[in-house]
Design a protein around this nucleic acid. Sequence first.
DNA 1: TAAAAAAATTATCCTAGGATAAGAAATGAG
DNA 2: CTCATTTCTTATCCTAGGATAATTTTTTTA
Lengths: 182, 182
Amino acid sequence: MKSLEELITLNENLRKVVINKVIAKKTIIQRPGDIITKGYYVKKGLLRSYFIDEKGKEYTFLFAPEDWMISDIESSIYNTPGTLFIETLEDSEVVIIDRKAFQEMQSNSKSLNIELTKLLNRVATLQKRVIMLMSSSAIDRYNHFIETYPQLIHRVPKKMIASYLGITQETLSKIRSKQLKN
Amino acid sequence: MKSLEELITLNENLRKVVINKVIAKKTIIQRPGDIITKGYYVKKGLLRSYFIDEKGKEYTFLFAPEDWMISDIESSIYNTPGTLFIETLEDSEVVIIDRKAFQEMQSNSKSLNIELTKLLNRVATLQKRVIMLMSSSAIDRYNHFIETYPQLIHRVPKKMIASYLGITQETLSKIRSKQLKN
DNA sequence: TAAAAAAATTATCCTAGGATAAGAAATGAG
DNA sequence: CTCATTTCTTATCCTAGGATAATTTTTTTA
């Protein structure tokens, strides 16, 4: 497969939606709350995305060394404020891709665009799941599950819900009985 | 946005790569080791994907009620044996989409296809990450990290690696010093 | 509708990894 | 080169959640 570099050089349209940039190390290039439609392709150096929870604890979401992409997918799909910081860990050269412009560029295949949207949704869901697994206690994960899938609690055996949350069914039982008392 | 249903009815090409099926509850429709290019869109009922680790412990990866998609993405990108079971939890009606045929159908936009591949890779990466977070101990996660990103250990502060693995930097220190002794 | 199988609960005991704290080592800035 | 800041390590103590096992409840099947 051709590198992004080569592709950009070759493709007339692509060159229009793409910007090259050199960024010094320890620069925060994106913050939670920003509404972003940008993705960053790393030509040289090292970027990192991370988030900070209410208690101020920091969680690294992704490292992006050479030839990786990094972005806050959730935000770029839904045009909602992002949740991630993105920063350079080393002096870096990146290609900035404006996803909006990119997507507008080719609306020729309807079904493919729908497939793309589905996939983006999937990435966003998994992104949230990883964040949950890293930062939340079993109780918080359970509560979040109930909010997100209120119907499923009645349709799915508890032990499978436990196995989705990454806890044992015994622990899930503890949590539920404790919650009933309050 | 139109439902998949409507789209299929409207689109001549789409109808060729798509099969409707009714499946009884508790049927396993896919197993680890299968080489799969299929995705399942749930019209009615409830599917679940899960995996089983070496110790026989079961982890639910995803629930798919009405209007969800479910598939083992990793396998369908790389044409490698899959890692997930997929089963019906209720009597279900699904639309089976052959991803290979689907993708061959529209190779018109090169750059879009590349974008698609990138995204699929991203989903696969996140899928593995979720599986790691749910099923592995801190030590295993650390070892896996080193194997996957051998260079990064030297380029990234330890505390950021800890925050990527979902552990504290003190615990990472414990792990590392224990490993040096062996 | 009875018997068997599977799922859920509860209690006890245990361990991986968190929190806290304090010192050592490394990095950075003037 | 030196002082200050950040990172890393080590030790102690503690807690969320796992493992095990026994009992109850629900579901399945004959």
